[in-house]
């Protein structure tokens, strides 16, 4: 099973199999696709703790704060965020379909659903911006204002990062031979998107439903 001398030293060797992956790390500067996915999942688990910390803080503030809603604010409008939620949750299905198309090597099907996902993600950001611009309170208006903008803003940053990643993956799909080394880029972007989606569902329940 051990790689040969030439295997080891050949920087340009394109075909990396799982079994031989270890041997190539040092030469290529990054892990085998399996290692990359493993590392990425660990990273996401760690990242989720930041969100859970914010959620925990939100719950503590909401249950203990002397003044919660700022003066003149009665609550949050749910209709627009609910539409946004439907869009974001649906985009998890479109990105899944895009991935299926890539698996069966139908690049145009992949690109179509991938682009649809980008559009839905962008609409979500647009909807978030519209909601922010109509709110009667800012982030300095007590702990409610602070946590509201912190949670939606931090999540929005992740959506933005996800859309950027998707754009990069879309452009890269036009490079010949892009998938020779596996589909780690697409798979990890997709996983990230599902992560952002799940976090939003929790956030939506906490902020908009539990008022």
């Amino acid at each position: 099973m051990n790689p040969t001398e030439t295997d080891l030293r050949d920087d340009a060797s394109p075909a990396i199999t799982e079994a031989h992956g270890d041997a190539h790390h040092a030469a290529h500067g990054h892990g085998s696709p399996g290692d990359q996915m493993f590392g990425f999942v660990i990273f996401l688990l760690s990242e989720s703790v930041i969100f859970f910390s914010f959620f925990a803080g939100y719950i503590v503030y909401k249950t203990t704060a002397q003044t919660w809603l700022p003066e003149g604010v009665l609550g949050l409008e749910v209709r627009e965020p609910a539409i946004n939620t439907v869009i974001l949750v649906s985009s998890s299905f479109t990105i899944y379909l895009a991935e299926r198309y890539l698996h069966i090597k139908q690049l145009w099907g992949f690109r179509a659903f991938w682009l649809l996902t980008i559009a839905m993600g962008s609409y979500f950001l647009y909807g978030q911006a519209i909601e922010w611009s109509h709110l009667a309170f800012g982030f300095t208006d007590g702990v409610f204002g602070g946590t509201f903008y912190l949670l939606t803003g931090f999540h929005g940053l992740h959506v933005f990062a996800g859309v950027l990643l998707q754009l990069i993956m879309l452009v890269r799909s036009f490079i010949p031979g892009n998938y020779d080394r596996g589909e780690f880029g697409v798979a990890s972007t997709s996983l990230f998107w599902h992560f952002v989606d799940v976090i939003w569902i929790i956030l939506f329940l906490l902020i908009y439903i539990w008022q």
Partner: peptide
């Protein structure tokens, strides 16, 4: 991995 993000949040 599980602890540091809490400090980051704070």
């Amino acid at each position: 991995l599980f602890g540091l993000p809490a400090l980051t949040a704070g």
